[in-house]
Design a protein around this nucleic acid. Structure first.
Lengths: 183, 183
DNA sequence: TGAGCCATGTAAACGGTTACATGATTCC
DNA sequence: GGAATCATGTAACCGTTTACATGGCTCA
């Protein structure tokens, strides 16, 4: 029925609805929220805002700060409708994973035992590193709750639990590879 | 020191080492093994095999079946070295996730309760669907064990456990959203 | 004979990152 | 005065998917 939103348009419309107003702000918010499962770069955000403006899903207005050119964007009614339609869509949508450590783990029969264990250790370290990043942004998400934004916090809780589970799996696997190899 | 392998080159070299010989075979193996965390399409595989051949990491030989042109590839010693070096590399490598259902979950404050619950149900259904796909390929991975390929099976076990954990999380979250909403 | 799989490949389009460029403002 | 950060944007490049094209082989 309506326009199929491009991947980056999906975050942009959502972030505008949550209160971000400029390309810069959208990027900042993404970096402390969705970037682990839905990133976007300036090279995508700015052109996409223009396209959305031309398509009538957002409205642009000049809002310079001092001598600096600056454009604020807002959802139009059509933009709101497109966002809601996408959010309520009855499909799985995109699900893509690219995990180089997991690929190395898959091929680990080609490695000696020490190197194979190192791959698993790396997986654990990465999970622990991500857990730390999540804990850093947790206060932000907690603040949001008071303003009625419950789901960003729930999403973060999910991410935390997932990364802790993965770190646990890696620890266990490391120990198994130490005692008695891969038997 | 040596050539930085392109993303697709990394699977290709590994799959050749595990016994695949043609672009077609590589693609088949990927589809029943790494595709959930490291996919590749013909449009990448065939040109990449040519590049790898020119770079001296694989050797090509004509091996027609009947009247059909067909090229078999094999790792050269330099290819073996490049593969081992990449496998033993001391970094995290690529880790990318793009998950549209999770993005919808993040924005679910913009939905009414029924639609928000539907997003979580979708996450559960997707996990269950992936678990089923994994169970279908499990016999393949089990067969590999007898031929000394232990890690593909371990990777599958990890994937299974991860998707079951996710389905559990979604079930639990669905129940929480039913009783008392998001409180 | 026709369906379906085996097998190979190319071209176009798409989405994304990275590097580059610019200049104002803020803070030490 | 200089560094860092705020803010906006473009151009080039890269990797990937999709659609298209071809044609032989196998089996019902």
């Amino acid at each position: 029925m309506s326009i199929q939103l491009t991947p980056t348009a999906r975050v942009i419309l959502g972030m505008l609805k949550l209160g971000a107003r400029t390309g810069y702000e959208i990027k900042q918010v993404i970096e402390v929220s969705t970037r682990f499962f839905w990133g976007a770069s300036y090279g995508q955000i700015y052109p996409e805002l223009k396209r959305l403006s031309q398509a009538g899903l957002v409205s642009a207005s000049d809002a310079p700060r001092g001598g600096v050119k600056r454009t604020e964007y807002e959802l139009t009614p059509e933009g709101e409708r497109a966002l809601e339609e996408w959010l309520a869509a009855d499909d799985f949508g995109t699900f893509e994973l690219r995990d180089e450590l997991l690929l190395r783990f898959f091929f680990a029969d080609l490695l000696d035992e020490a190197d194979a264990r190192a791959v698993v250790r790396r997986i654990r370290e990465r999970s622990e590193w991500i857990v730390e990043r999540f804990r850093e942004i947790e206060p932000d998400a907690r603040d949001g709750i008071r303003e009625g934004r419950l789901y960003p916090h729930l999403t973060l809780q999910y991410g935390l639990a997932l990364m802790e589970w993965t770190a646990e799996w890696a620890s266990k696997t490391e120990r198994q590879l130490e005692n008695g190899g891969t038997q």
